[in-house]
Design a protein around this nucleic acid. Structure first.
Lengths: 206, 206
DNA sequence: CCTGTTGGTCAACGCTTGTTGGCAACATTA
DNA sequence: TAATGTTGCCAACAAGCGTTGACCAACAGG
């Protein structure tokens, strides 16, 4: 359900912990707050997701949110940390990048409400838009740089891909256009994969 | 229900008034309120665009807003009435529908901040999303019905077109991804027109 | 003149918001 | 045991919100 638990968490497999945080007794409360925050931000956006409502959902006192995350912006920043988990750009075939991207994004959006929350907030909140820009610049751009023919065009092509993928997310998960909601995942892939593939690898149309 | 400003019109209307409203002395104030509301809704979204801020921009008292538009929802409804001004579906060639649609939408969005406001509000506000659904159902769907091969597929195809057009608007006018902002209009058309054309007229890919 | 309607300002109401500080219960260590 | 830090709840604060009603200035028709 949640996407990263604080404290002991993630085992010890590869590399040292970037933040060696000792486990705290309040870890359960902390994650409860983050889960509730993601849910409320996704459902209501930044302004209407009140700290009181989030606290009530997490079944704790509103003042705890302040203690653990400082203020509302801090809570938002903590709740919206996200990794798109895009595959290693070196390990994918150039001709299947489109289909793979659409499939992967669809999976991520279906299972994870953080992305919907981020899109909702990004539409009205300065910090949310900034975060969204950062995510796509850091995680989608490198992939485009490896796949598209001329690396200099990578930013434009990544932006075009973003426009189609985020547009789908907008109509399907936020605005909920009935036909967009009703589409089966495989149909979405069948329609959108060629578009994304063209944005990535087709020659510049001008 | 109409969006043209009362009082000093922009001179485009040669037809008869659909709603024969007698001119009032307060018409200037009413349009000032609507203009300020559109500007604030576009910049801040529904919640953060306060009636007080809108009134200050219109240089009148907040209570006037209540007097003329009832409440905040009424003001929003009055400010967001919009006509996409899509051309008569019968008068366009099937092969140029894609290019024509992208060009037309780009023009509308560049000149009109109402659309940006509507998109911002639709992302967080129930009524905004509803309005957005209505607009595209009433204005884009009929066009798709005339252009696409099987009228039964029109809703899906219109939704796909919406996803690409709204996705462009989202990345370019709301999230402001730098590469999406930097694209020249003709480049946008060159990239997106084939996509929209395919969504409208290509055979079902599954 | 008086009277009624319209356009507009002012001050305030009730409510919700983010945020704060105090206080009790518990855990840990000395 | 006492001392200390952590976890949590409670009550309250100042500020801002949408909204309301009293009040004043101008005009119109008799």
């Amino acid at each position: 359900m949640n996407q990263s638990s604080p404290g002991t968490g993630t085992g010890h497999g590869t590399g040292p912990d970037p933040t060696p945080t000792p486990p705290r007794r309040s870890d359960a409360t902390r994650t409860a707050i983050l889960d509730a925050a993601r849910e409320r931000f996704a459902a209501d956006g930044y302004e209407r997701a009140t700290i009181r409502a989030i606290a009530k959902h997490a079944r704790i006192d509103p003042s705890m949110v302040m203690r653990y995350y400082g203020n509302k912006e801090g809570l938002f920043a903590a709740a919206m940390a996200i990794d798109l988990k895009l595959p290693d750009p070196g390990s994918l075939h150039r001709d299947e990048a489109g289909r793979m991207l659409v499939t992967h994004f669809l999976d991520m959006w279906e299972e994870n409400e953080v992305l919907t929350a981020l899109l909702r907030v990004g539409a009205t909140n300065q910090a949310g838009a900034e975060r969204m820009r950062g995510i796509f610049a850091d995680q989608l751009l490198p992939l485009a740089r490896r796949v598209c023919p001329d690396p200099e065009q990578a930013p434009v092509r990544a932006a075009l891909v973003s426009s189609q993928l985020l547009g789908l997310a907008l109509t399907r998960y936020v605005l909920r256009f009935p036909p967009a909601v009703a589409l089966a995942p495989q149909e979405v892939v069948a329609w959108l994969a060629p578009t994304v593939q063209r944005y990535l690898t087709a020659p510049h149309p001008a």
